[in-house]
């Protein structure tokens, strides 16, 4: 059985500052730090391998500073990795190494092939315009030029993400946190991307609101069959949304496995600490 990876990350590393064998060998979980004292280099991520197939959600769990954001920024193309490849398979079957793209090609990829839902809606939305306008942004970027078709598609997406249509023409500034995340989801799904990155999608929301948004994300992932990466420090989010996940600590993947297995039978000392903290 050969899986059709939508995203395949191989040997990804990102080092800020001078890099050498000593820097790599002198950092990581066993040293308790991603920073190498003698040179001041920070090994934000090293030796990271990830694969995500269509219809599958992969979790990346870790505390802030674990390197999960660095990995995500490399996947998105905001950061250029020091080493490694980030290969995305587009819906037409062609593959592309995001790490090797120029900025314009990367931007095009982010319009058509991958989308991000940010923790902070301000990073993903223009609060000064309407909910429909925010979705229209992705559609016009992809070349949609019919006002009627843009309206119809935006309404369809907002309906799918449970934004009441009476609010379609309201400014996002006037939306609650949970509703803003729903608009972000509608925007992310606008061009049927092959890959969606969810970066702490419910962090910062009230528990009951977060539960509703998680439910929505879960049903979207189930129904749409897209590949997803869910980045979170929260085990319950990972458990709810993903089938496999990796645990990151001090810039390295310390453990990977099936999500229920990682939760019930964690092997690495750090994973065990995370799980017992989550259960406490």
């Amino acid at each position: 059985m050969t899986a059709e990876w939508v995203l395949s990350v191989r040997g990804l590393g990102k080092v800020f500052g001078p890099v050498s064998d000593e820097v790599i060998a002198g950092t990581g979980p066993e040293h308790g730090s991603a920073k190498y004292g003698p040179t001041g280099s920070v090994v934000a991520a090293w030796g990271v391998n990830l694969d995500v197939a269509a219809g599958e959600a992969l979790g990346v769990i870790g505390e802030s500073g674990s390197g999960k954001s660095t990995v995500m920024r490399c996947v998105v193309g905001d950061l250029e990795p020091t080493v490694g490849s980030v290969v995305l398979r587009r819906s037409d079957g062609s593959t592309v190494d995001i790490a090797a793209l120029d900025p314009a090609a990367r931007r095009a990829l982010r319009i058509h092939d991958m989308a991000i839902v940010h923790q902070n809606p301000v990073d993903g939305l223009d609060l000064r315009i309407t909910a429909g306008g925010n979705v229209a942004d992705r559609l016009t970027a992809a070349g949609w030029r019919s006002f009627g078709e843009i309206r119809t598609r935006a309404a369809e997406l907002l309906d799918r993400t449970e934004v009441p249509l009476v609010r379609m023409d309201d400014l996002v500034r006037d939306f609650s946190g949970g509703m803003r995340q729903r608009v972000q989801l509608a925007k992310a799904l606008a061009n049927n991307p092959s890959l969606v990155l969810l970066d702490e999608p419910t962090t910062g929301l009230d528990a009951s609101v977060a539960a509703g948004v998680l439910d929505l994300i879960r049903s979207l992932l189930d129904d749409l069959g897209i590949a997803a990466i869910v980045v979170s420090h929260d085990f319950s989010v990972i458990e709810m949304l993903t089938t496999r996940c990796v645990v990151m600590h001090h810039g390295r993947v310390v453990e990977s496995g099936l999500t229920d297995q990682l939760f019930e039978d964690p092997h690495h000392p750090y994973s065990q600490r995370l799980v017992s903290a989550a259960r406490a």
Partner: peptide
Amino acid sequence: RMHAEADYARLWVSLYEDRVR
């Protein structure tokens, strides 16, 4: 950058917003 990449999506959005509002 926007001119260099002919990225005029936000101009279209402003036309959309104008018409909606």
